[in-house]
Amino acid sequence: MVDMNTWFGIQQLYADYASAVDSGHWDLWPEFFTEQCVYKLQPRENHERGFPLCTLSLTSKGMLKDRVYGIKETLYHDPYYQRHVVGAPMVRRVEDGRIHAEANYAVFRTKYDKESTVFNVGRYIDTIVQTPEGFKFAERLCVYDSEMIPNSIIYPI
């Protein structure tokens, strides 16, 4: 479906994304996306029943940058480490140069004085495009299995 270079590029994109969102350097996050991107965080039930409500639904890179500002400056929260473990991406199809891929993910959260706990588990449903700066997400939909959120989600999944 895709050649080896493309496959390698997709793998690298997933690994780099996970590394970036676990690093605490939030400004890295919007750079994985195109200007007219979509980033959604949605519970599985809403996704499967076709309900449009999302926990977060950001529809431009500007919105992602605004979210970063919120994380750094306005969202008062108990800081935590997060650790993404992302499965091997599966390429579902390629249409008009747009790569449709998915991967399972698990995010663990560690508060500085507590044990690590399972924070958010689900599946990325992505649309990836090639740009002069390499592969970017045109869409990243994070569909998480449990609606029971441990209080709040501050950082990017």
Binding site: R67, L75, H77, I149, N151, S152, I153, I154
Partner: peptide
């Protein structure tokens, strides 16, 4: 629970 306005309500209550 992730909202710009309300995510920190829960944090502060905790």
């Amino acid at each position: 629970p992730a909202g710009f306005v309300s995510a920190d309500d829960g944090e502060v209550i905790e």
